[in-house]
């Protein structure tokens, strides 16, 4: 969150009559952030190494506390997903995923007795956990946390194929690739795209609705930062009980207020090419 610097002594009192509703809300949000009841502050405590600091402080203080820079992350706005599977196709094509495997998939949740919603689609992929169980479980350090970006990556030549990481992963994000002779998994397209200068992953750029939003959580101007740090809509992660501090955030993403947040961010829902 980016608040302008204001010298309070030089300001003249405008009176409370001129405070708009929007400003009022912003002021309240600042208060919530500082006192720690800020909704996303709770979620962020899962992602930051320094939990207590992140939880207790608000504003820009704890932005620096993210353990990586750029701290790559993805926000999935569940309600926008239409199960077109363009992301899965793009992923398979970009990363040469064999037909028996997948790095990302879309799960379907059906509702009964709901008036507004019958079905919901939940895209899942590697959560690039800060406290990754797969990294702990690997006997030969074949899978590791990238010290710069925080991406959970594979050093294929070290993989002995014991498959412990597949079972250690609480997100079912790994499979054994016979072509690579190693476990294969999502690396946020690091090898195929990010390391070659692109800023979006294959799946996020292929998504026609903007359900997948990829970005840098350390940058307060980044859309991912803004989505995670807004307080209008709740943000959650999958399986928080495992304590893995995942970096894939979920939200419904269908509220007007979120649109308002996004409007100033040069983000267009329908045209991923310009995002």
């Amino acid at each position: 969150m980016n608040f302008p610097k204001i010298d309070l002594n030089k300001l003249k009192n405008e009176g409370t009559e001129s405070v708009t509703v929007k400003e009022r809300r912003n002021f309240l949000k600042l208060g919530f952030a500082i006192t720690g009841v800020y909704a996303s502050g709770k979620i962020l405590s899962l992602s930051s190494v320094l939990n207590d600091v992140a939880y207790a402080s608000g504003g820009t203080d704890f932005v620096e506390k993210y353990p990586y820079n750029p701290h790559y992350s993805m926000v999935i706005r569940q309600s926008l997903c239409i199960d077109c599977e363009k992301c899965v196709e793009a992923c398979n094509k970009t990363n040469h995923v064999p037909e028996y495997g997948y790095r990302t998939r879309i799960l379907t949740r059906k509702y009964q007795g709901q008036l507004d919603k019958k079905v919901e689609f939940i895209p899942v992929l590697c959560n690039h956990c800060n406290d990754a169980p797969c990294v702990r479980a690997c006997p030969t350090k074949a899978t590791y946390k990238d010290p710069v970006t925080g991406i959970v990556r594979m050093e294929s030549k070290k993989c002995i194929g014991c498959k412990t990481c597949m079972l250690a992963c609480p997100y079912d994000a790994r499979y054994f690739s016979a072509e690579r002779h190693a476990i294969d998994k999502c690396d946020f397209c690091w090898e195929e795209r990010l390391s070659k200068g692109e800023t979006q992953t294959g799946c996020s750029s292929a998504c026609p609705t903007g359900a997948r939003t990829f970005g840098n959580l350390t940058d307060p101007e980044n859309i991912v930062f803004k989505l995670v740090h807004q307080s209008e809509e709740s943000v959650w992660v999958l399986r928080p009980e495992d304590g893995t501090k995942p970096n894939i955030f979920y939200m419904k993403g269908n509220m007007v207020s979120v649109d308002n947040i996004l409007k100033g961010q040069k983000f267009i829902y329908s045209d991923p090419a310009k995002s």
Partner: peptide
């Protein structure tokens, strides 16, 4: 016959050990 790359195991268990891995300790 279960480990996919048993020959790598002999090398990387020694030169790239992960001391927090139970699998490493077990082996």
């Amino acid at each position: 016959f279960d480990i996919e790359n048993p020959f790598r195991m002999a090398i990387y268990n020694v030169i790239s050990p992960n001391l927090s891995s139970n699998m490493w300790w077990m082996g």
